[in-house]
């Protein structure tokens, strides 16, 4: 018994070291963001002697991060709302309504889940260009919705499959139409799954760079992640400003993670336990 306890402590040391290695890069970046250029060049590791918020202010205002931030917020918010609406409608229909071809449809949606964006990006770029949607908010929103909808439908369908069919039947007997059942019963009942899928989709959209690069070529339409990549070239000799830009992009994710970690993990693992 004492042998296994000893083993556990021996294992705990490298695990704790790994935990530090996981946190440190972000702490390092935050520290650099608070330094002056001179301080960074003289010593990379020392704690900044005073907090130089002017780097953050510079990144936010003169570098244009505020504009990119706003673009990201608008696009992510619209995408997530649409994804949740369309995903829950489809999930409810697939899980709780009987109609011809429902299992075929579900399989088709599942197949779309395994088509990675890289495989369709060339024709998609052409479709978006032909329809005049390139470089517009609706174009990028539509691209995100198309990308993450199969996953959303998959999770919502498996969630609604756990809702007892009697609830739907009872609501029908009470005189609700199918749409009424969806709007008044299923949508509110889906809240836990919607929260989990919604957070995950928000992260996917917020973190994306490839789709955004492809759909938003002009500088003023850049999303935040593309904005960060453009900082690298512009501020290669001003590391604290660069680090400030990175920090601005990372902090919202950190906040979401601190409050909704369990929901994120639930969304990630739902595919594993139900697939």
């Amino acid at each position: 018994m004492s042998g296994t306890r000893l083993t556990k402590w021996v294992v705990a040391v490298p695990m704790a070291a790994l935990a530090l290695a996981t946190i440190y890069p972000l702490v390092f970046t935050a520290n650099v963001a608070m330094k002056t250029r001179r301080e960074y060049i003289l010593d990379r590791f020392s704690l900044s002697d005073s907090l130089h918020w002017e780097n953050i202010v510079k990144a936010w205002t003169s570098v244009g991060m505020s504009r990119y931030f706003l673009n990201s917020v608008i696009v992510v918010a619209c995408s997530v709302v649409l994804l949740l609406l369309l995903g829950s409608m489809a999930g409810f229909a697939l899980a709780r309504l009987r109609f011809r071809g429902s299992s075929t449809l579900f399989l088709g949606i599942l197949a779309a889940l395994f088509v990675p964006f890289q495989v369709i990006m060339v024709p998609l770029a052409r479709i978006m260009a032909d329809t005049g949607l390139v470089d517009t908010y609706p174009g990028l929103v539509l691209a995100y919705v198309a990308q993450f909808l199969p996953f959303t439908i998959f999770l919502m369908t498996s969630y609604y499959s756990t809702v007892p069919p009697e609830i739907v039947d009872a609501a029908r007997i009470d005189g609700n139409t199918v749409y009424g059942v969806y709007w008044r019963i299923m949508l509110p009942m889906g809240a836990p799954a919607l929260l989990s899928v919604g957070v995950l989709n928000a992260l996917f959209c917020w973190n994306d760079v490839l789709i955004s690069l492809l759909m938003m070529p002009s500088a003023e339409n850049r999303t935040l992640m593309v904005g960060v990549t453009s900082l690298r070239g512009q501020y290669s000799d001003d590391i604290p400003t660069f680090a400030s830009g990175v920090l601005i992009a990372a902090v919202p994710v950190l906040l979401v993670y601190l409050f909704l970690q369990r929901q994120i993990a639930d969304g990630v693992t739902a595919g594993a336990t139900k697939g």
Partner: peptide, 9 residues
């Protein structure tokens, strides 16, 4: 949903 998935994926 089906329209978007078929047309854009």
């Amino acid at each position: 949903a089906v329209l978007i998935i078929v047309a854009l994926r």
